[in-house]
Simulated assay, not measured.
Amino acid sequence: MFTPSRLLIAATAVALLAGCASQNPYDNQPPSSNKTAKYGGLGALAGAAAGALINHDNRGKGALIGAAVAGAAGAGYGYYADKQEAELRQSMQGTGVEVQRQGDQIKLIMPGNITFATDSAEIVSNFYAPLNNLGTSFKQFNQNSIEIVGFTDSTGSRQHNMDLSQRRAQSVANYLTAQGVDGTRLSTRGAGPDQPIASNATADGRAQNRRVEVNLRPLPAQPPQQ
């Protein structure tokens, strides 16, 4: 039976450890680090203790229920991003698209040799398959925003490159919305020759700089309904 004293003790136990469990699991961590299990585990311990207190007649059952609920809550967005990252890595295998994890953010880097022809914003045919896979993933995992950024090398005028990179980013966004991805989650930006990842002094370096990046981040928190 749930007596007031048991409920109070259980609530206190969860509240004390919830602060630890609800910390961002990826603050200031390198891409290879994963704290989801750590914080989810702390939350699970809190939940187990609370569950055992609530269900005095069957402490084992109460502990299991409490651990499951609090553990999932403690893992939070980190657990969600782990699942999405794994799915993206699998679906992008062999496509030339690189998947990176940077804290709570997932970044997809699409090199110029699979995306657009030189000085064009028309999607090339071998780019359709990766984009179709992305569209499927973005519809399945719909709890993050999608920023699409176009880049160019330094050849040509800066204004031309800024315009071209914006048109390329918009082409990717248009294709994804045509595949059923919610357009309200999408934003586009043209970075032109800014933020090169290789030297523009060589042909290989310029090819690396001609790219499209897709950044996935948690959706901003919604204000409570009045």
Rank of each mutant, 00 (worst) to 15 (best):
M1L: 14
M1P: 14
S5A: 15
S5N: 13
S5R: 13
A10K: 05
A15C: 09
A18K: 06
G19E: 12
G19A: 10
P25C: 03
Q29K: 12
S32G: 12
K35R: 15
T36N: 11
G40I: 09
L42D: 04
L45E: 04
A49C: 12
A50H: 00
G60P: 09
K61H: 14
L64M: 14
L64R: 10
I65T: 11
A67E: 02
A68V: 12
A73C: 12
Y77V: 03
E85C: 13
A86N: 12
Q93W: 07
T95F: 00
I106E: 00
L108I: 08
L108Q: 01
N113G: 11
I114H: 04
A117Y: 09
A117P: 03
S120Y: 02
A121G: 08
A121I: 06
I123S: 02
I123D: 03
Y128D: 13
T136I: 14
N142D: 13
E147K: 15
E147Y: 12
V149T: 10
D153I: 07
T155M: 10
G156K: 03
S157C: 07
D163M: 11
Q170N: 14
N174P: 07
A178T: 11
D182C: 01
R185E: 09
L186Q: 01
L186R: 00
S187Q: 09
S187V: 07
T188I: 06
R189H: 13
P193D: 08
Q195R: 14
A198Y: 01
A198C: 04
N200I: 05
R206H: 07
A207Y: 09
N215I: 14
P218H: 07
L219D: 09
Q226P: 15
